[in-house]
Design a binder for these strands. Structure first.
Length: 683
DNA sequence: AGCACGCCGACT
DNA sequence: GTCGGCGTGCTC
């Protein structure tokens, strides 16, 4: 490389002289490609995908960005500036990921650079140097793979389903087998994992052994570990590239670069792994797509499901959604015939026993919310191993109330709700953390409070008293226990934080069903079904699973293990109400006049046919000086709605002015903001 | 975001 | 006549 590209050297005839650059800027009006000249000195490293620094508007002001493509002549009429610097010669933004980012941003009326930020971790120079040195020395080496050859067998499923899933471009919703299996990892240690992990690992290993890459997006760390153990069990542990959020930033960049090296890999990570720059993508797996952690909280809020659907379409890879229960979104895709349903063969039916809640004077201690039948199940199961008790709330007493007037107990400092975190602790404020010493009720001046709800900690205390001598283990969101051994123990866990028990739980008690169902949410039925199903799936084969205090359609769905029936009827309701996912929605937020003009501009931009396929809710006032309108529309017109709303956001961003030098207290009107497919908003 | 351009009020 | 106020618009 040395000696090439001296200043003033002439670029070879026919070489690309113009780089089209995506700028790293949050401004919607800069979300397009800008043309720059490639100076001869930089030509050797000027490849599509490399990070660059470019001048913007005036000399001295630089922006960062990525070369997206190289052409001989740009389409810009004016005179072009030259690229300042090529930050690194590594082409980190692959054409495939760029195309994905552009499509998803357009679909969500957002900036492609916001997606690229999720896709490419921050650069780590030392990591990059080490990677380049390694690549220069050894070239691109495929990871070594041990273990059995490609079998195409999918344990617990029919041969015909396995064959269907092996076909290129296959798309399916797979109902996971609701129990646990032992795996023998390469480290020589035996582990227990959910059977889903073995299923996903079998699919991944068979695609990987064809020389293709796999991406698996899992919601949390516990699932990440289980899947890595299952992949190790199948002899493809070396192929795993982990991209989870727990990694240090340098490790994250190192693993990102490994994914980029051109060899086939099995990428396992959180929702942003869907953007991994692997080559020859053969399979995308989304495990437990309904988990809220699969929903992206950063703009433009593209759910991993939607990113996966677009990436599948663009790459022609296989795509499977694996879960114990079905979201309405996946149900819609099944009903459209877009996803093929796959059930275990023979169907696996866990033992689920619904028990109506009862006030039972005979129940030990004051634990009346645990019916006698459940006590008996727990007592018997504790003879042979661990028992899982799922509860709704973490802490000890999550809610306190005034003993005199029954009002919720509020912090005397900030007015926030009080709670007791651990047994014997003084009450403290959930918001500001202040210890409530000498508490007085703000309503009646009473000074005594009572526990108004029961958390995991208090349940654990009660159970410990009822079963003297039995180990009690608490796992909640704050202190999550990942695994427990096979010895008898009462494991009290909040939903989603259940440890995996070696050999599976001998019984599962789902205690706080009615409380979980009481939550005000459009998704409450599907969420509860998912929480319960996932806990049941941690039980050993034939172990009893007691569902306390829940009857009706939900209990029936669990007993017959047909959660998709609930998803189907939920979706039918949403169609009737025109709620997502039957339709798409976009929320439009901003100053009242801004939103009003945006809505009328949108009407003007759409054809009559398009307008007929949508309706508007609101606007309603939200926070200070802001209103929010919701537009609902059929999937067919989503592209047009997104394009026009995006244009209005750009227009608003360029014309709106914060007026400096105005009277003190003057606040610029809130910006026009558009967000697509925010299903939380319908609650 | 920043920064230059441009179109109206007070000035040597 | 022009110096400079800040609203307006653009960024390859």
């Amino acid at each position: 490389m040395a000696g090439e590209g001296a200043p003033g050297e002439v670029v070879p005839e026919g070489a690309a002289r113009v780089a089209r650059v995506m700028l790293e800027s949050p401004l919607p009006q800069l979300d397009r490609l800008f043309d720059y000249l490639v100076p001869a000195a930089l030509a050797p490293d000027a490849h599509a995908g490399v990070r660059v620094k470019v001048p913007l508007r005036s000399a001295g002001r630089t922006a960062r960005g990525y070369i997206v493509e190289l052409t001989e002549r740009g389409d810009y009429g004016g005179s072009l500036s030259e690229i300042d610097e090529i930050v690194s010669p590594l082409p980190v933004l692959t054409p495939e990921v760029w195309a994905l980012a552009r499509r998803l941003a357009d679909r969500a009326a957002g900036s492609a650079c916001d997606i690229v930020r999720l896709a490419i971790p921050p650069r780590f120079v030392r990591v990059e140097k080490a990677f380049l040195a390694r690549q220069g020395a050894a070239g691109t080496a495929s990871p070594e793979v041990a273990g059995p050859p490609v079998t195409g067998v999918l344990t617990g499923y029919s041969e015909s389903d396995a064959a269907h899933l092996a076909e290129p471009g296959a798309r399916a919703a797979i109902d996971a087998i609701a129990t646990v299996v032992p795996v023998h990892a390469a480290d020589g240690v035996d582990h227990t994992v959910g059977h889903w992990a073995l299923t996903v690992a079998e699919l991944a290993a068979s695609v990987f052994r064809r020389g293709e890459s796999v991406i698996v997006a899992v919601p949390d760390y516990r699932d990440q570990i289980s899947l890595e153990q299952a992949l190790s069990h199948l002899g493809v542990g070396n192929a795993v590239v982990p991209l989870d959020a727990r990694q240090a930033r340098n490790d994250r960049y190192a693993h990102f670069l490994t994914a980029l090296d051109g060899a086939p890999h099995i990428v396992v990570g959180n929702r942003s792994s869907i953007y991994a720059p692997v080559s020859r993508l053969g399979l995308i797996v989304i495990w437990d797509e309904g988990d809220s952690l699969q929903s992206e909280p950063l703009a433009p809020y593209v759910h991993v499901r939607d990113a996966a659907l677009v990436r599948q379409e663009q790459s022609g890879s296989r795509l499977v959604f694996v879960a114990h229960s079905r979201s309405t979104e996946v149900e819609r895709l099944v009903e459209l015939g877009f996803l093929h349903q796959v059930f275990p063969a023979p169907r696996y039916l866990p033992r689920v026993v619904p028990t109506a809640e009862q006030d039972d004077a005979d129940a030990p201690q004051n634990a009346a919310r645990i019916p006698t039948a459940a006590w008996q199940v727990a007592r018997k199961a504790l003879e042979s191993g661990p028992v899982l008790v799922q509860v709704a709330r973490p802490g000890y007493a999550p809610v306190l109330a005034c003993q005199t007037c029954n009002a919720p107990a509020a912090c005397t400092v900030c007015g926030g709700p009080l709670h007791v975190g651990r047994a014997g602790q003084r009450p403290s404020c959930t918001l500001c953390g202040a210890i409530a010493a000498n508490w007085t009720c703000s309503h009646c001046q009473g000074t005594r409070y009572r526990f108004a709800s029961i958390g995991a900690g208090r349940t654990a205390d009660e159970l410990g008293r009822a079963f003297p001598g039995v180990r009690v283990i608490v796992s909640d969101g704050e202190r999550t226990v990942l695994t427990v051994d096979a010895r008898p123990a009462l494991v009290v866990a909040t939903r989603g934080a259940e440890p995996i028990a070696s050999g599976g739980y001998r019984a599962v008690l789902l205690l706080d069903g009615p409380r979980m169902l009481a939550r005000e949410s459009l998704r409450v039925a599907e969420d509860c079904l998912r929480w319960w199903s996932n806990a049941i799936a941690l039980s050993a084969p034939r172990a009893p699973n007691v569902l306390v205090g829940v009857g009706g359609e939900l209990a029936k769905a669990l007993v017959t293990w047909q959660q998709e029936a609930v998803a189907g009827s939920e979706l039918a309701d949403r169609r009737r109400l025109r709620f997502p996912p039957a339709v798409r929605i976009a929320t439009i937020t901003g100053a009242a006049e801004t939103v009003a003009t945006a809505l009328s501009d949108l009407r003007a931009l759409l054809s009559d046919e398009e307008w007929a396929k949508m309706d508007t809710l609101g606007p309603v006032p939200t926070e200070e000086a802001s209103v929010r309108a919701i537009v609902r529309f059929d999937y067919a017109v989503g592209g047009a709605v997104a394009r026009h709303l995006r244009a209005l956001v750009v227009k608003n961003a360029t014309s709106r002015r914060a007026k400096p030098g105005r009277a003190p207290g003057f606040r610029p009107p809130p910006t026009l903001r558009v967000r697509f497919d925010d299903s939380e908003i319908m609650e």
